[in-house]
């Protein structure tokens, strides 16, 4: 193990390390802690210049109450859910299929298609922006959640295919061959042999894509416009325009917007990290 475990070092080093950990963490998360404190402060703290000091009174309920009951935030949150969930389902479904095709079969063009997915996945969004917007407008899907979902599925399929394909490649191939010898149809092999083995990959993909899509801002700005379809990342800017300079409310709104992926991360931590660190170990 590297670096040398502290257990093997002197008592002083051990204690020092243990003491330094929380300190380092607080320093690292300082911006976040500040926002959390902002969100429970009263209005008057900001007008009187007490930005970073202790809250003069606890207004957490008031501030969050305003966010939930007097603004369009719940609407935006709901939109985010209705955009994110179908995207996750759609992407995982498509990527399982493409990953299966690219991972199991040897055929001409296999690597080419695989590389197309990878390359497309790294393309800067801006080169897609105007054509995708026009396409969405032409289909009558501008400013609908569906329009956003369709694009997200298409784009995320690139990344998810990379993941799924590599995962399938690592599966024991004899399993598939055995099934073939038995005369099992190929699509049955997919459903009954490969898919059950892919559960961890599906879980990892699902949490990752959930986070990516929930946090998407650019496409939300390009393809949607109002509270009826905008997700919370874009909604927060109109929310902020409404409460400009009201830091306590903007902070509360930001925290509400950030919470779902955070919760997802803590619930599914293992899968999340497995997904992100794909390829970091050989």
């Amino acid at each position: 193990m590297f670096p040398t475990p502290v257990q093997k070092q002197s008592r002083a080093v051990q204690l020092g390390y243990q003491a330094f950990l929380p300190f380092a963490l607080i320093l690292w998360l300082l911006p976040l802690i500040a926002v959390m404190i902002f969100s429970i402060k009263p209005d008057v703290d900001f007008t009187s210049g007490n930005y970073w000091g202790w809250p003069s009174s606890f207004e957490g309920f008031n501030n969050y109450g305003k966010v939930f009951f007097e603004s369009a935030m719940p609407r935006y949150l709901l939109n985010s859910v209705m955009i994110t969930v179908p995207t996750v389902i759609g992407t995982v479904a498509l990527a399982c299929m493409t990953g299966f095709a690219l991972g199991v079969y040897k055929f001409k063009g296999n690597l080419l298609i695989f590389f197309m997915f990878i390359a497309g996945n790294f393309v800067p969004f801006q080169i897609l922006m105007v054509p995708v917007r026009d396409l969405t407008v032409d289909m009558g899907l501008y400013n609908t959640k569906t329009g956003l979902v369709l694009f997200h599925i298409a784009f995320q399929t690139g990344f998810a295919t990379l993941f799924m394909r590599n995962f399938i490649r690592a599966l024991p191939f004899p399993l598939i061959e055995a099934a073939r010898v038995e005369g099992v149809a190929e699509w049955r092999i997919f459903f009954y042999v490969v898919l059950p083995l892919m559960k961890p990959a599906i879980a990892a993909m699902a949490v990752l894509i959930f986070t990516f899509i929930w946090n998407d801002y650019f496409w939300a700005v390009v393809l949607t416009q109002g509270p009826e379809s905008q997700p919370v990342t874009a909604g927060i800017t109109s929310f902020n325009a409404q409460y400009r300079a009201a830091y306590h409310l903007m902070s509360a709104g930001s925290i509400v917007a950030a919470l779902p992926p955070v919760a997802m991360f803590f619930l599914m931590q293992k899968h999340f990290i497995a997904g992100l660190t794909l390829g970091a170990v050989k």
């Binding site: 498509l94 095709a101 393309v123 080169i127 995708v132 369709l150 298409a154 784009f155 295919t161």
Partner: peptide, 26 residues
């Protein structure tokens, strides 16, 4: 020989329409 193409079709189609074609259009 056919199965992989059937499995690829929806994903590739989506990707062509929403990612590859727009690059050329831009």
């Amino acid at each position: 020989a056919i199965t992989p193409w059937l499995f690829l079709a929806p994903g590739v189609l989506f990707f062509l329409v929403y990612v590859i074609a727009p690059i050329y259009q831009s």
